[in-house]
Amino acid sequence: MIPEPKVVNTIINGDSKQILVSERDSLLEALRDRIGMTGAKEGCNNGNCGACAVIMDGRLVNSCCVMAAEVEGAEIMTVEGLASRDELHPLQTEFLDNAALQCGICTPGFLMSSYALLQENPDPTEEEARFWLAGNLCRCTGYDKIIDSVLTVAKG
């Protein structure tokens, strides 16, 4: 039987949104397939890769592991909300200028995860950054330039 669709009310990147979801949808599916926000990516759909990372009520989550129904009333920040109207976020600028992306599919997840890291720990050591970002997989870069970019932004 096809479950009844359900409306969830949420705030995404500052805008209130009502999303019509299937009760089986994850937050990732709700974002991508129901409202066409495809910044968060699916790499594994089971919490192993971090490509779908978003920030939910101030906490970093893998959106593939959050049920869409759970976000009722929550505030979500996705990669689409990282830049301001006029300017890229310093992490975005540094990733670009330091070639921290190759294929770029991991980049939205790394940006959200790095943003959350710097909120929590504005001046991480290399080791702290590597451990925090260990939940985000990148298969292209060997992590070198990603870690370097995050540390550069932290140093201001």
Partner: peptide, 23 residues
């Protein structure tokens, strides 16, 4: 030299359209 890549901004802002992003 080391200029920015032309597809870079789309990729750091989540706008780049990968295969599964098509609507």
């Amino acid at each position: 030299t080391r200029p920015r890549r032309p597809d870079g901004v789309d990729k750091v802002t989540g706008r780049a359209q990968y295969g599964a992003d098509i609507k």
